[in-house]
Design a protein around this nucleic acid. Sequence first.
DNA 1: TTGTAGGCGTTATCAC
DNA 2: GTGATAACGCCTACAA
Lengths: 346, 346
Amino acid sequence: MTGMHDGPKSPPTLHDVAREAGVSVATASRALNGSSRNVRSENASRVRAAAARLGYEPHLSAQAIAKGSTRTVALVVRDVADPYFSAIAAGVTRAAETDRLIVTMAVADGPPERELEIVRTLRGQRPRAIIVAGSRVDGAGTRDALIEELRQYRTAGGRVILISQRDLPFATVTIDNRGGAERLARALLGVGYRRFAVFHAPASVRTSRDRHEGFVAGLCGSGVPEPLAIETGFTREGGYEAARRLVERGFEDVEAVFAVNDVMAVGAMTAFRDAGVVPGADIGVAGFDDIASAVDVVPALTSVAVPLREAGVRAVLLALSHDEEAVVDLPTHVVLRASTPGRPTR
Amino acid sequence: MTGMHDGPKSPPTLHDVAREAGVSVATASRALNGSSRNVRSENASRVRAAAARLGYEPHLSAQAIAKGSTRTVALVVRDVADPYFSAIAAGVTRAAETDRLIVTMAVADGPPERELEIVRTLRGQRPRAIIVAGSRVDGAGTRDALIEELRQYRTAGGRVILISQRDLPFATVTIDNRGGAERLARALLGVGYRRFAVFHAPASVRTSRDRHEGFVAGLCGSGVPEPLAIETGFTREGGYEAARRLVERGFEDVEAVFAVNDVMAVGAMTAFRDAGVVPGADIGVAGFDDIASAVDVVPALTSVAVPLREAGVRAVLLALSHDEEAVVDLPTHVVLRASTPGRPTR
DNA sequence: TTGTAGGCGTTATCAC
DNA sequence: GTGATAACGCCTACAA
């Protein structure tokens, strides 16, 4: 019996491995991680064997401080559970894995100041890159502070990648929100709708604003009236609420609604149904994002497909590149489905 | 002009802060992190001011190696984009934030060996805890290796938390899959269904097996025939596929199907519709998990609600506790909706 | 209360 | 090729 109460044995160190293999730490280090070639192959295998026997795993923090750099990428999202962000996160983790990067995740839901605070503490990790998805960098006074914080991080050698619109001096993966919404408007005009409502979030949500503006732009010159704008939350409940309000107001001739994202659109469809209005038949509904469930909802939701996963992947690629202000533009495309069967052009 | 090509200035260190404040590193360290009280308040504020001026942020890796412990929690999931896992992840990040923990995320989709490999490299981070959600620890030969790996990690002072079934000697957050499925079966019997099909994943997926078994158990003694079991993938496509097969086989009298998770159920409903079979009316459909969209799908999906977010929160709490094999049992409850309006008991 | 010095686990620089 | 040894940025006795 070797002792019944050993307590937490601390993990084996490189030192232990070296001793076990009968070589110096330097050699052990080289055999396991270093530029490999310069160690006698017999010793190399001795070391590897010893490492395996001991269950040695290099202490990443120690490596980080010795090498002066980490293999960590920090991802900031507003809500992991939201399909929009989780799709991006999936892309990020996927790409990170192939490049042996570690992904740390921070959630910035609270107020905008919170986002600033998060980025600040994130810097403590000394990540190779900070990827900010869907920030409300737009928000008032904190905006400048956040930019300053990110800039400082960058001059300290970090990479900043934004997934949003290209309006900040950082590498950015943009999603063609404006263009997509514009094309969606044209497509809806094409199937005969003439009178629209737009369910949008407050103007501080840049994504919402861009999609809204794009939609209006797409209607331009068609001679149809300005769409009815209803402001609400950027969430499923927001969409539900807005639809309820539209019903209460008696529709005001609206034939189709464009909700600036799919979860809002889905919420709206449910609200319509709850009010006895049949989406698709009584009123057209379109969203944006083309989330997975768009196709399983009834009627299937017309939307604008956004390569979210791809955005995550590209963000990591940008993180690895060295182009400080590179911009990757991701296309979006309209997907017409049963929720907008169209109206006869009278 | 101070030089136009400064290059990446490395981030300020505690040393810099100390110098700027005119004190020793030790004092600076104490003022910023240490037991605080024992430093003259004037010096303390000097240091804090200097830190703020320089934009200093402590190097977490350095702290980790100096203190011999991190504030990191590693989360292993099978797919971030899956609402099941993203809900758990949301809970984990939420709880981690209130405890100022850093969450790193790893995705274990590939083969089971991949999971082993991931846990191994995760150990390199020396995280306080490794939380494994929905692992297929069941899978054959790698199972023992994985257990051994986790055990090793634990004896090295790490905490292991599993979110799954309680069949491994580690702290576990359990979800009452069996019980939930059992009660679901009874509820469906209660509204009059008598002939069932179960869409389930291969037996190696423990969650699927438990729900399947629970459902069968719930039927027990009611005199209804053994449900028709159709094996398929644990995904939306799997559900679609299974439904298609059931339709092809002419239903064999099946009045309601139980898909072992909601995304499968949703896929199944779409498949039924595509085949001209109206879910709810022509055939009952029930799922498990009660994902957010269950209520927006048509007809609204009968399901078993699982406190996924809560599971994530509790996992972090367990990570902070010191009970090595604690078990937290999370209840599930049946939610009957329009997808199972019931059949007359003839 | 403050500073000095040693140590944490690695890597990198030098001699050998 | 290999082995001492000095970093890396921080914390923490210990001493002053």
